[in-house]
Design a protein around this nucleic acid. Structure first.
Lengths: 356, 356
DNA sequence: CGTCTCAAGTAACGCGAGTTACCTGCAGCA
DNA sequence: TGCTGCAGGTAACTCGCGTTACTTGAGACG
């Protein structure tokens, strides 16, 4: 914080763009010397005295390196590209946060390009060609692709020109490394929590059974039950739309289908929005949470989970961590690590609140 | 879509970096000619024939311009910097979306730099120096600063070196242009809607009365009432924390404070989270929405408003529009329009759902 | 037939840096 | 004295592209 620059001087100078040559002239040395000092060159022989003179000149003139010129000369850009539909469909924003923070730590820049393929199906699903093309024009050293929900995607050819890592989705063609949530472990931990609370009749409000999240979470639920010597009762599993209304309807069905004494005492909702609807169904019937019926969700959508009454116990999707891990993985790849199609599973931690 | 490049060839070539010179050589012309064709130069005299030859060469080699080099040579970068805490505190994400989309349309790139000043108070509130510095090193042509909630911010010196526009906040020093929601009009439209539905005893669940949002929205509410010859009853205004719990408590107070016949028949909640809590308070008392009590919110936080039962009628904060407008304003400034400290107000539209 | 003009294109410089190869002078050593 | 070696630098080339000034050849015109 030892800036001795007078703001006026510095500002005025910057307007016209202070270059290394200006600094060199001011310090009475060659531009090369300045370059050596600024890039902290190991084996450069610059006396302590001139090093100081140069640094002083930098301060005095308010010199600021030109990142573009540096990239051009050094053939390295310090930039990663992030293609994502998250900007378009604001869910899983924490992926961006995690990636941003990690990139910032690594002194790299994230160029974010929007993709609007969230709901696309068919040949063009996945990365958007135009976005990738634009990013490659910026000479990004690597690409990240982040999806709003866990699924398989197709990646365009050009993305293979630089190291690429998928976040919250995986390569349908099985060539690229990816970072995805460990849905199965998450489902297991959720149901284990319910078992631990003494529940044995557990209802499940399922998602569309074809998506990876549903498959994994349900599988995990089965494992947990099996661990307690129980089986998943098909009568207690109802699928619905992934919305509050869907959850409401599914919960109504589960609750009304059975006589009181065979009714489940706990509901595992495969996402928080459905849990939100389930709350309504339960309350409407004069039942209490968690007294009469315990509820556990999945996703940890803060706006819902933290604001429902009672607050919702849920399994969190590790968005931020996945984002950070994506950047770290990409860093390793750009540093020369061989590219494999590994799928890294990230833990989904249980968030205890008040609904169990 | 008439790409005739064979993927293999193009990809291989790109690896080593196809330059303009390569294209020139392939087409049998000078590099200058290629440059002229690619930049669509008005007064360049290039015959149709060679123009085609050059374009063919571009396709054949899979040439991709180097954005950095272009910026260096032309002294213009096509980049805007967006400094924001939204990445850190994912609210108002639609500002980013709006800005992104607009920038994309304008063929400009948005460099997003995180700031974590959301809750900072004091001298360092506002833009983060480091983020701005980093962006200026990238030679962005302008800066945007976006806040998660409407407030005054302080901007560091260096941000004044390039055109800067504030989104969802305003310059506490009164020097920079800004884009903010028209809170007052929003408050007015909300209460007018309630009046129109026949309500005359309207309760208000207020935010911290010191923040601009509260001031504006309440002012608007007063205007609407005045328009109907009514006044705001201080007994019907309760402030609370901007959370569901805060709204719950405030609603309880308003509802229980008065005998049944003097109880308000409608609640204007100054944000949706508080409305969420108010719902609970109302339902707990065996009252229905909107039958017994109408509720109107503010913010249009989709996850809440669209999933509450009944769905919440609310006034939307025009995040996306503000983002787009920010980029447009910045474009005008970088194009040479004089910089003024204008504060542009953006309309907050009413979103009719089912709670009124 | 000589000159002028214009279409069509090219050579060469500069943008702001990184990087390599080279230069200079002084100390040490035989 | 003459040679070597090294600390302390510098000149010059390069990155990929925009841009200005200049060249060349062919047709028009008097």
């Amino acid at each position: 914080m030892a800036k001795t620059t007078t703001p006026q001087k510095a500002a005025a100078a910057r307007q016209r763009g202070v270059t290394m040559s200006d600094v060199a002239q001011h310090a009475g040395v060659s531009r090369t010397a300045v370059s050596f000092v600024l890039s902290n060159r190991e084996n450069a022989s610059i006396s302590e005295e001139t090093r100081i003179r140069i640094n002083d000149a930098v301060q005095a003139l308010g010199y600021r390196p030109n990142a573009g010129a540096r990239a051009l000369a050094s053939q390295r850009s310090d930039w990663y590209g992030l293609v994502t539909e998250i900007v378009t469909a604001p869910f899983a924003v924490d992926i961006i946060k995690g990636a941003q923070d990690q990139a910032w730590l690594d002194r790299r820049f994230l160029l974010i390009a929007p993709s609007d393929q969230a709901d696309a199906v068919g040949p063009n699903q996945g990365l958007e060609d135009a976005a990738v093309e634009k990013l490659l024009e910026q000479r990004v050293e690597g690409l990240l692709y982040a999806a709003t929900f866990h699924r398989g995607v197709h990646v365009p050819e050009s993305a293979h020109e630089v190291p690429t890592v998928l976040i919250n989705c995986f390569d349908a063609d099985g060539k690229l490394p990816s970072i995805v949530p460990d849905e199965r472990a998450g489902g297991r931990v959720a149901v284990e929590r319910l078992l631990q609370a003494g529940h044995s009749r557990i209802g499940v409000i399922n998602l569309d059974p074809r998506i990876p999240a549903a498959v994994g979470r349900l599988e995990g639920a089965r494992e947990a039950l099996a661990g307690a010597g129980l089986e998943l009762d098909p009568d207690l599993v109802v699928s619905g739309y992934a919305t509050a209304d869907g959850g409401y309807e599914a919960a109504c069905e589960i609750l009304d289908r059975h006589p009181k004494n065979q009714r489940p005492t706990a509901l595992f909702c495969l996402n928080d929005r459905m849990a939100m609807g389930a709350y309504d169904a339960i309350k409407e019937r004069g039942l209490t949470i968690p007294g009469d019926i315990a509820v556990i969700g999945f996703d940890n959508q803060e706006l819902i989970a933290a604001y429902l009454r009672p607050k919702l116990t849920t399994v969190a999707l590790p968005f931020e961590k996945m984002g950070a891990l994506g950047v770290q993985t990409l860093a390793a790849l750009t540093a020369g690590q061989p590219i494999t199609a590994d799928q890294q599973l990230v833990d989904c931690p249980l968030l205890e609140r008040s609904s169990v």
